[in-house]
Amino acid sequence: MNLKKILIAADASENAKRAAAYVGEIIGPRKDFEIEILYVLRYPDRDLFPDADAWENKKDEERKKAQEVLSGLSTVLEEKGIPVSAISTVSKEAKGFSIAQAILEYQQQNGFGTIVVGRRGVSKAEEFLFGSVSNKIVHYARDCAVWVIE
């Protein structure tokens, strides 16, 4: 694994912005780093919608949101002086329930040595009921460093 290949796990939260800003601050204009921003799309379940049209509209909205987030986080990195050529973005659809698992699979397949993830800070009850992407990444990540930004 190449520690200088950095994967930023993105979502629409302020924590993701903080994670990107942190990476930008640490790496700055250095040229020997590669930074990819990954947005894992997990569409809301069809069961939540009364009809297929409403569901498709929501999925379109989610795809647009992903593109906006990726573009916004790229800008954050650029503003911190990271060369545009070192930044790439990608959105992927989660195959199962777990966003953390999708992030880890992508990290393994593409040889990222560092994962950066924001943490929203959930209560114990919320963690039990809903789980936590950042905690799961910390727990299951192998052969890489994990930066958790709060």
Binding site: P44, D45, F97, S98, I99, A100, F128, L129, F130
Partner: peptide
């Protein structure tokens, strides 16, 4: 809405 641990509830 799906969460990271869908079976927690």
């Amino acid at each position: 809405e799906f969460e990271e641990n869908p079976f927690g509830l």
